[in-house]
């Protein structure tokens, strides 16, 4: 039996619309522009976020669930939904016909239909960098927040080189990940840092950039940083003139060796004395047998530098609210 929903008073209509998920609101948008606009105005979608991966799958993160809009070319499957376990949690899928402009046009449609203000995650997957840079330009124009941006698995490195300057204008707030092997002459400087960066081929990130880094977590692999540079950087950190927000620093560099000190200690820097100590923080990072270091203001940190096949420096800064520092009982040796 039909019910004239849009004749309800607005407060009542809002109650009903708040029970509708992104799939239903999307279908509603296909019924009527006017009703869709009203629904967007009334429905509490301000906290909804969108995920874009350049391909034929777009995600709306709403009310703790992920709703995937997937492309299908079979009309009989339009608006078909299913639920599947993915990465340990249930995800909902709906098959739709993509607009003629492809994923970019769908992205714009979803932004406007749901009044979305934040991009949860953006990633260039499977060589779809063209679409990603188009979306990135749009987000820059609209000054929208991008919480996480990943650039991995690119077919053509030059595409990645071309997109990097856009990062300076993108408002990436939480996480940046890059696993591209850029050409040796590649240069890039961050204007603003998100909370975390993870760069797996990070030869291009030099000590001056790192010194100005405002991240809480820094994870670099294949870095070129030397003992001397790290020593300077950590002395600056000690006197609070570098890495002001740092909680975790992890750097793998083949240039770390036992030829010069880092914070007055020659690597390897490992606590070989009892009691042994483990440090565990809210980021699920663990360090064992680290050496205690202190900033001039008294802030406590723990550092460990390993040599060998993959020389690496690890520094954790302790926040008593979320870091557990505990002694390892002597008879637990074998467990570690």
């Amino acid at each position: 039996m039909p019910i004239a929903l849009f004749k309800f008073p607005n407060d009542l209509l809002r109650e009903v619309l708040n029970l509708c998920d992104p799939f239903e609101l999307y279908k509603l948008s296909k019924c009527s522009k006017k009703c869709s606009q009203k629904a967007t105005m009334l429905r509490d979608t301000k906290m909804w976020k969108i995920g874009y991966y350049g391909g034929n799958d777009m995600t709306i993160c709403a009310d703790g669930s992920n709703y995937h809009f997937k492309k299908t070319q079979k009309p009989r499957d339009y608006f078909k939904t299913e639920r599947a376990l993915r990465f340990g949690r249930y995800n909902d899928y709906m098959y739709i016909e993509f607009p003629k402009g492809g994923s970019f046009e769908l992205f714009v449609y979803l932004l406007e239909t749901f009044g979305i203000r934040t991009v949860k995650s953006m990633e260039a997957l499977f060589g779809k960098l063209h679409n990603v840079s188009k979306v990135a330009k749009l987000l820059m124009d609209r000054k929208m927040e991008i919480e996480e941006f990943r650039i991995n698995k690119i077919d053509n490195v030059q595409d990645a080189v071309n997109i990097m300057p856009m990062l300076s204008q993108m408002n990436i707030t939480q996480f940046f990940e890059c696993s591209i092997k850029f050409p040796p002459d590649f240069q890039f400087e961050f204007v603003n840092y998100p909370s975390q960066i993870s760069i797996s081929k990070s030869f291009w990130l030099n000590i001056n950039q790192l010194s100005n880094c405002t991240c809480t977590r820094v994870h670099l692999q294949q870095s070129m940083l030397t003992n001397k540079e790290l020593n300077v950087l950590l002395h600056e950190w000690k006197n609070a003139s570098a890495l002001p927000n740092l909680r975790v620093l992890e750097i793998e560099s083949n240039n770390i060796d036992n030829q010069s000190p880092i914070l007055d200690m020659i690597p390897p820097i490992i606590n070989a004395n009892n009691p042994r100590v483990s440090i565990f923080n809210k980021f699920y990072d663990t360090m064992i047998d680290g050496v205690q270091v202190k900033k001039n203001d008294g802030t406590e940190g723990w550092m460990r530098v390993d040599l060998g096949y993959r020389p690496a420096l690890k520094l954790f800064i302790v926040d008593p609210a979320d870091t557990v520092v505990e002694e390892i009982p002597e008879d637990d040796d074998d467990d570690w």
Binding site: P2, I3, A4, L5, F6, K7, C20, E24, K27, L28, K30, C31, S32, K33, K34, C35, Y78, F79, T81
Partner: peptide, 18 residues
């Protein structure tokens, strides 16, 4: 309207076309 198509939703909720 759970699991319904836009056309069915239009009928159930008596939504006029554009």
């Amino acid at each position: 309207v759970k699991g319904k198509s836009p056309e069915e939703i239009r009928e159930i909720w008596m939504i006029p076309t554009d």
